[in-house]
């Protein structure tokens, strides 16, 4: 990883800050968010690791992570964070960054019939909202 000032304080990082309204530099990597997250067994990166990547300006890598999509926005982490960082806001800003270019939404008409039939309604609603 090559660090320089245009990486650490790059354009992507600034955009994330604008969307989320969060200052990730406040995070001192204690890991309390990850310790209490209900979804970590499914995640490829722990929530605090996603924050670390953003701190280091490694936004591409954060965007490629499954974690940002698995975050259920339950807010347990932000309620507990000793540094007042709202991780769900950061996760949302990463998702939005992925979605804004467009063309990444779920088309219900193209879902296989058995998925449409068997998937819980809530899953479809949540999926449509996230991927809209």
């Amino acid at each position: 990883m090559r660090l320089a000032r245009d990486v650490v304080r790059g354009e992507e990082e600034r955009k994330l800050r604008d969307i989320s309204g969060e200052e990730v530099r406040s995070c001192y990597q204690c890991g309390k968010c990850s310790a209490g997250c209900a979804m970590t067994s499914m995640m490829d990166l722990l929530p605090h690791q996603v924050i670390r990547l953003v701190q280091l300006g490694q936004v591409e890598e954060a965007l490629a992570s499954r974690t940002i999509w698995l975050c259920a926005s339950c807010l347990a982490c932000s309620a507990r964070c000793p540094r007042g960082v709202s991780l769900p806001n950061v996760m949302e800003s990463l998702r939005v960054t992925m979605l804004r270019p467009g063309g990444r939404h779920i088309d219900p008409a193209r879902l296989p019939a058995d998925v449409l039939e068997n998937a819980p309604e809530q899953a479809l609603v949540a999926g449509l909202r996230k991927y809209s």
Partner: peptide
């Protein structure tokens, strides 16, 4: 190195 992210670091 940054052991928090597990990445080696190079800075010019």
């Amino acid at each position: 190195v940054d052991t928090l992210s597990g990445k080696k670091v190079e800075i010019r």
